[in-house]
C-alpha cells in the first residue's frame, strides 16, 4: 500500500533541501508553509516580494504588527538582521538573480522545465500574475511543490504544457505527494519515490518520461 504525502509533508520534504545560508522566496498559498519546517539551527533567509528579507516565526496571537505582513498578507516577524526595502529593490533582487531558490505551486510542469501556474483559460476570473513570472525567470533555482496529479487524476508533469506559460525552462526540482524529481540536461530524474511505488507506477501517472537516479531513495516525511 503506497502512502501519499499530505501538502504539509510535501512542504516538510522540500524544506529539508534548503541549505544553510540560502535566500529563499516562498510563493503565496501552499509554499508559505515551507518556512515552518527548516531544520532547527539551520539559517535560511526568507524573502517576501513586498519588501522584506529575514522573516522570522509567526507572531504570537495578540502580538501581530499590522504594518508587517508577507505577500500572502499574513502577519510576520523580522529576525535580527532583517531588512525592509521598496518594490523596485525587491524585484531587482528577484530579476537580477540574487534569490537562490523560489518555491512555487503549479498547474503544469513540462519535461524541459516550462512552468504554467498563473491562468486557466476557461476561468471567469480576471487574469492575475503577481510576481510569478519575475520569480520563475529570475530566481537561480525554481522548486515546484504540487500534487502529482490533478483532482481529476490527470498528470500535471507533461511532455509539453497545454496551459499558457509562466516561464520557459525554469523549473529545477519538483516535489509532489509521490516523488521528488530533478531536471537535468537530459530530462527528468526521480530522486525519491514513496514506499511501494516503482518507476513503472510513477511513470503511469506522469506525462513526461522519467529516469530513476542510481542512488534513489524512499520518499518519507514525519506525520504532521
Amino acid at each position: 500500500m503506497t502512502e501519499k504525502l499530505s501538502r504539509l509533508q510535501i512542504a516538510w520534504r522540500l524544506a529539508q533541501d534548503l541549505e544553510e545560508g540560502l535566500v529563499v522566496n516562498l510563493g503565496a498559498g501552499m509554499p508559505l508553509t515551507v518556512s515552518n519546517y527548516v531544520p532547527a539551527g539551520r539559517e535560511v533567509i526568507f524573502h517576501s516580494e513586498n519588501g522584506v528579507l529575514g522573516i522570522g516565526p509567526r507572531p504570537a496571537a495578540g502580538r501581530e504588527n499590522p504594518q508587517l505582513r508577507n505577500a500572502g498578507n499574513q502577519p510576520i516577524t523580522l529576525l535580527p538582521g532583517g531588512s525592509l526595502f521598496h518594490h523596485a529593490d525587491s524585484f531587482t533582487m528577484i530579476r537580477g538573480g540574487h534569490i537562490d531558490v523560489c518555491v512555487l505551486g503549479a498547474y503544469e510542469v513540462a519535461e524541459n522545465g516550462d512552468l504554467a501556474n498563473w491562468i486557466l483559460p476557461d476561468s471567469p476570473r480576471a487574469p492575475a500574475v503577481g510576481g510569478a513570472m519575475d520569480l520563475a525567470t529570475g530566481a537561480k533555482r525554481v522548486f515546484v511543490m504540487m500534487e502529482h496529479c490533478s483532482k481529476e487524476g490527470e498528470p500535471k508533469i507533461l511532455k509539453k504544457c497545454s496551459l499558457p506559460l509562466t516561464g520557459l525552462a525554469c523549473v529545477s526540482s519538483i516535489y509532489t505527494d509521490m516523488a521528488v524529481i530533478d531536471r537535468d540536461p537530459d530530462g527528468l530524474v526521480v530522486r525519491e519515490m514513496i514506499a511501494g511505488m516503482d518507476l513503472a507506477g510513477l511513470q503511469s501517472v506522469t506525462g513526461a518520461s522519467l529516469r530513476l537516479a542510481d542512488h534513489w531513495r524512499v520518499l518519507s516525511a514525519p506525520l504532521l
Binding site: 516580494e49 524585484f91 500574475v129 510576481g131 513570472m133 519575475d134
Partner: peptide, 11 residues
C-alpha cells in the same frame, strides 16, 4: 485591463 508582471510594473 492591462496585466503586468509585478517586477515589470515596478521597473
Amino acid at each position: 485591463l492591462e496585466v503586468v508582471p509585478q517586477g515589470t510594473l515596478a521597473e
